[in-house]
Amino acid sequence: MTTKSIERFSFAERASHWTSALCFLYAAFTGLALWSPRLFWLSGVFGGGETVRAWHPWGGLFFFLALGVMFRRWARQMQLDEDDQVWLAKSHLYAQHIEAGIPESGRFNAGQKMMFWLQSASAFFLLLSGVVIWFPEFAPRPLRLGAILLHPVCAAVSMGGIMVHFYMSTMAVPGSMGAMVRGTVSAGWARSHHGKWFREMGGR
């Protein structure tokens, strides 16, 4: 056993991650209030329907901006390499905790990289379609019809992705929460889950 800890996420990374997470949750739950009349009661939790209608777009916009900060910082590290391709092909083994034959990961594994691109793409399309729904009186009808389809589709994809992300970080991979909250992981954690990165950081 070792108590040696390694810095995984800097303060700036953690701050932008949790800013975007909070804005996302706000946008997701206020959005869900309009998802169906049966969920409209949710708007009461957030100050009523008119408040939700007025503030949801701002929550979404701030989410997009915070994600933009993460994007600038991480986009290069999130490029998939050849090992990642193999990892993806064997992701069903990863899910079963079978390690044999799965290439070691760098700072981010291929699954995390896919999550990053999925969230980035859906945030981009949420913004585009969201702006159209924001100002219905200025958008031509065909554009509005496209947007009222695209927005919930992207919202569903990103919320589904976040459900997986949430499960992974809180339950499936113990230790990852500490990485994003305190910024550090144990050396053993780094070696077990991100072997290549562990060695880059000088571990053996």
Partner: peptide
């Protein structure tokens, strides 16, 4: 997610060999 956790549990960290 629930079934996955029940069947496979969390991903282990191998701290021992460090």
């Amino acid at each position: 997610a629930m079934l996955h956790y029940l069947k496979f549990g969390p991903k282990e960290t191998h701290d021992d060999e460090i």
